[in-house]
């Protein structure tokens, strides 16, 4: 009864109300920001007195914002590459291996995902100060790789567990070398896992704030660091414009992910 939508009676309306209100609560700030980024008021008056594109103009003509965005993009791409590569190789070992302590290793690989990121940030900051990686692209990449790798391993071990190894064995018996069988048969079969690993890794790095704050230097900062630094001074609508662009990137990636998922099902 309680799990049949139409036999809930009055409860149905109570539940629907809560759900609609919650959905509105979740959606409102996002729409609000998008609206404000086109509003003319410096003081973020809502509804805006008139509409304008000047904040986008300010954003896109400021080389510091553009450079931060480029830095973010570059770092996220490198992180994605290594996260998927290392994660893929490790997932094969984790799923197929028969050695002791496999589940312990899995748990260890997941820890960066569950540990408070501020602890990792402070620890890496100390370490990088000592070995001179602070404020370098390498430092950024390593820091983000640590938090992206769990997502990658999670997606890829999941995909590999769902993949019937007999298919790869069949390719090997057909005469393909183990490597060739993996590249030509297994990888296409787990492509959905590869896509999720890539998208999650990219978004993890692209959106990451806390590690980036500690890794950044005045000459090298990512978009989130730039927003963070600006935000601590004032709430300028330029941030609304930057945020809206970030949201668009997210929505695009989500749509791609959904399309890939759908395409694989069809």
């Amino acid at each position: 009864m309680l799990l049949n939508f139409n036999s809930l009676g009055i409860w149905k309306w109570a539940l629907l109300t809560i759900t609609v209100l919650t959905a509105a609560f979740l959606l409102m700030p996002i729409l609000f920001i998008a609206a404000l980024s086109f509003g003319s008021s410096q003081w973020l008056i809502f509804p805006p007195p008139s509409w304008t594109l000047k904040w986008y103009g300010a954003l896109l003509s400021d080389p510091r914002w553009l450079e931060a965005a480029w830095t973010s993009f570059r770092i996220a791409l490198i992180v994605t590459f290594f996260s998927v590569l290392i994660g893929l190789v490790a997932s094969f070992g984790l799923v197929r291996g028969r050695f002791m302590g496999r589940s312990t290793l899995r748990a260890l690989f997941m820890t960066p995902m569950i540990l408070p990121v501020v602890v990792l940030a402070v620890a890496l900051y100390a370490f990088f100060l000592r070995i001179g990686l602070n404020g370098t692209t390498t430092g950024f990449v390593i820091a983000h790789l640590i938090v992206a790798l769990p997502f990658s391993i999670l997606a890829l071990t999941g995909a590999l567990e769902g993949f019937d190894k007999s298919i790869e064995d069949a390719a090997v018996l057909c005469g393909a070398s183990p490597l060739r069988a993996k590249l030509q048969i297994t990888l296409p079969c787990i492509s959905h896992g590869l896509f999720s690993a890539a998208i999650f890794s990219f978004l993890t790095s692209w959106d990451e704030v806390v590690l980036a704050i500690f890794m950044a230097s005045p000459t090298l900062q990512t978009l989130p660091v730039k927003i963070w630094a600006t935000l601590r001074q004032d709430l300028t609508p330029v941030i609304a414009a930057a945020s809206t662009l970030l949201i668009i990137v997210t929505v695009l990636l989500m749509l791609i992910a959904a399309a890939v998922k759908k395409g694989l099902k069809a």
Partner: peptide
């Protein structure tokens, strides 16, 4: 295995799902 030149049909379906029937046999 890959050099033994032995054929095998498995218990589970092991056709390469991303390849057509013809491509499977051609592999």
């Amino acid at each position: 295995s890959h050099k033994r030149n032995i054929g095998m049909v498995f218990q589970r379906y092991t056709l390469f799902p991303h390849l057509s029937v013809g491509e499977n046999i051609a592999f």
